[in-house]
C-alpha cells in the first residue's frame, strides 16, 4: 500500500498533519491507560494527558484540513485515513507495555514537543504560532510530569529502575527518526514556517542526557542509525494499524454516527 499523499506534495499541509498525528496517536496511547492506571490518581493523570494531546490534535488537524483544501474536518482526518496516510513518528505508535515504557516515551516526546513548540511560537505562519503557544503550556506540564516520573522510577527500587531502563532501551531505536529532516521540511523552515527537525537534536540530547544522568539511566548510542522506511512515504510499524482499528471502529461501523465533540 502506498500513501495517497505524495511525500513532499503540499508540504505546508503535510507538516501540520504530522504535528497533529503525533499528538493524536500519543494521545490515544495515553487514553489506553484509562481504567488500567497504577492507581486511581494516575488513571486521571493519564486521561488528562490524553485529553491535552487530543485537544492539540484537533487544532492541528483542523488547520491541516484547511491547508488541504478539500473541505474536510479534523474528524475526517482522524477517523477516515488508513495507516499509510498517517504522518506520526514511530515512537508515538509503540504499545504501552508498562508504566516504565510510557514514562520513557513521555520524557522523550514531551521534551521533543516542548522544543518544537517553543520554536514554532515564532513561526511566520500565525496559525501555527497560535496553536503552538496554547499547546506549549500543556506540554510544559507533560515534561514536568515525565521528568518527575523518570526520577522517581530511576532512583526508586531496583525493579523500577530496571523497568524504566528497559523502556528507554526499547524506544531508543525510534529516536533518530525524530530528527530526520526532509528537503521540503528544510524549505518550510527556511521560510520561517516550520522547524527543521535536525536543528533541535542537540538541545534535545542535552536536556535528555542531563535528566537521565540524574535518574541513573543509561542512554543508548543511536549515532548513524535510522529507521527503515519513512513516515513521509506512509511507512509505519505494525502497531499503528491496531490503534486505528480501535480508534476508528465506531466511525467505520456507523459512518453517520454523531458523537460528543472533544
Amino acid at each position: 500500500m502506498t500513501s495517497i499523499y505524495t511525500n513532499g506534495d503540499n508540504p505546508h499541509f503535510q507538516y501540520v498533519l504530522g504535528l497533529g498525528d503525533d499528538a493524536l496517536i500519543l494521545g490515544h496511547r495515553w487514553s489506553e491507560w484509562l481504567s488500567k492506571g497504577p492507581n486511581l490518581e494516575l488513571d486521571i493523570a493519564a486521561s488528562n494527558l490524553a485529553l491535552d494531546l487530543i485537544g492539540q490534535a484537533d487544532l492541528w488537524l483542523s488547520y491541516a484540513a484547511e491547508l488541504q483544501g478539500e473541505g474536510k474536518s479534523s474528524d475526517d482526518l482522524a477517523y477516515l485515513r488508513d495507516t499509510h496516510d498517517f504522518r506520526c513518528h514511530w515512537l508515538t505508535e509503540q504499545p504501552n507495555t508498562d508504566w516504565g515504557l510510557s514514562t520513557a516515551r513521555m520524557l522523550m516526546f514531551s521534551v521533543y514537543q516542548y522544543i518544537r513548540y517553543e520554536r514554532l511560537v515564532n513561526s511566520s505562519d500565525e496559525r501555527i504560532a497560535e496553536i503552538a503557544k496554547k499547546a506549549l503550556k500543556e506540554v510544559t506540564y507533560h515534561r514536568r510530569f515525565a521528568t518527575e516520573w523518570t526520577m522517581r522510577l530511576g532512583l526508586g527500587t531496583d525493579e523500577s529502575n530496571r523497568r524504566l531502563q528497559k523502556g528507554f532501551d526499547t524506544l531508543w531505536r525510534f529516536v533518530p527518526e525524530l530528527f530526520e529532516t526532509t528537503a521540503w521540511e528544510q524549505e518550510l523552515a527556511d521560510k520561517g514556517i516550520a522547524v527543521a527537525s535536525k536543528d533541535i537534536e542537540a538541545e534535545w540530547t542535552e536536556v535528555i542526557s542531563a535528566i537521565l544522568a540524574e535518574a541513573d539511566i543509561t542512554m543508548a548510542d543511536t549515532a548513524g542509525k535510522r529507521v527503515i522506511g519513512s513516515r513521509h512515504d506512509g511507512h509505519h510499524t505494525e502497531h499503528l494499524g491496531h490503534i486505528l482499528a480501535e480508534m476508528q471502529f465506531l466511525q467505520r461501523a456507523y459512518p453517520t454516527a454523531q458523537g460528543a465533540t472533544w
Binding site: N39, L40, E41, L42, I44, A45, N48, R144, F145, E148, R152
Partner: peptide
C-alpha cells in the same frame, strides 16, 4: 485527599483531580 509516593506527586495528583 489523594494517594501519592511523595509531596511532588501529591501536588500533581491533586492538580489533575481537583483543579481540572
Amino acid at each position: 485527599s489523594v494517594h501519592a509516593a511523595d509531596g511532588r506527586m501529591a501536588i500533581e495528583n491533586a492538580r489533575d483531580l481537583y483543579t481540572r
